[in-house]
Simulated assay, not measured.
Amino acid sequence: MSEHRLTSIELDAASLPASSAEIEHERRVAIFDIVEKNAFQPAGAESGPYALKMSSQDGRLVFDIAGPGFTKAHGLSMSPLNKVIKDYIDICDSYYEVLRGTDVGKIEAIDMGRRGLHNEGAELLKSRLEGKIDIDHETARRLFTLVTALYRR
């Protein structure tokens, strides 16, 4: 396993809004999955592993990274991510609502849209981090899940 990886992730409690059981479960699963398998290499870092603290500060997404002999904070404007995040949150809310019903066809259709928006958000996040942090697609997907957790109002 590469040394350039995350071994811990913390979401700033002050940045987190109240959430449902489904959203809280998604956060825990995303953090667990990232820590289990990820590719995360901050520019200028010689070796990992790294600890990441994510927060939302003044409309910016902040990544505080610490590793052996390395600390760095990256702030990204949320503006380019706002639309895909809002659309993703809306479709997730619809998905959770439909799950309570029994219309399998509707569940599958909404889930396909949800996965498509999730991939779009992950690719946008990955491109916004380009030159700052090198991540793979699966790490970007899971980080996008955590970004939406910080964004929810």
Results as ranks from 00 to 15, higher is better:
143 L>S: 01
152 R>L: 14
153 R>Q: 11
117 L>R: 00
46 E>C: 04
119 N>R: 14
132 K>E: 11
101 G>Y: 02
111 D>I: 00
69 G>A: 12
137 H>V: 05
113 G>T: 03
108 E>T: 05
34 I>A: 03
152 R>W: 03
114 R>N: 11
48 G>N: 05
60 R>E: 15
40 F>W: 09
32 F>R: 15
104 V>R: 15
65 I>C: 10
11 L>E: 00
140 A>E: 07
61 L>M: 09
59 G>I: 02
136 D>W: 01
94 S>I: 01
70 F>W: 08
68 P>K: 14
60 R>W: 02
126 K>Y: 07
60 R>Q: 15
86 K>S: 13
123 E>K: 15
49 P>I: 07
59 G>F: 07
71 T>C: 10
49 P>T: 04
42 P>H: 07
15 S>I: 01
95 Y>H: 11
35 V>I: 15
129 L>E: 06
58 D>R: 11
56 S>W: 05
62 V>F: 06
150 L>K: 05
2 S>P: 12
136 D>K: 01
11 L>P: 01
126 K>F: 09
133 I>P: 03
12 D>S: 12
144 F>N: 04
32 F>Q: 13
98 V>C: 09
38 N>P: 02
19 S>D: 00
119 N>W: 08
146 L>F: 08
12 D>K: 03
49 P>G: 08
144 F>D: 02
46 E>D: 13
95 Y>I: 02
142 R>F: 05
56 S>P: 00
106 K>Y: 05
116 G>R: 13
46 E>Y: 05
16 L>D: 02
4 H>A: 00
125 L>P: 11
107 I>R: 15
66 A>I: 05
82 N>T: 13
41 Q>Y: 02
26 E>Y: 06
69 G>D: 13
148 T>Y: 11
71 T>K: 14
140 A>W: 06
123 E>T: 09
143 L>I: 01
13 A>L: 11
108 E>P: 00
142 R>Q: 13
106 K>T: 09
152 R>G: 07
98 V>T: 11
25 H>E: 10
14 A>K: 13
114 R>D: 09
18 A>V: 04
19 S>W: 00
149 A>I: 04
131 G>D: 04
18 A>G: 05
87 D>F: 04
62 V>R: 14
62 V>T: 10
52 L>H: 03
131 G>T: 06
55 S>W: 08
69 G>Q: 13
81 L>F: 01
153 R>G: 12
79 S>W: 06
145 T>Q: 08
28 R>N: 13
43 A>L: 10
19 S>A: 15
120 E>V: 10
142 R>D: 08
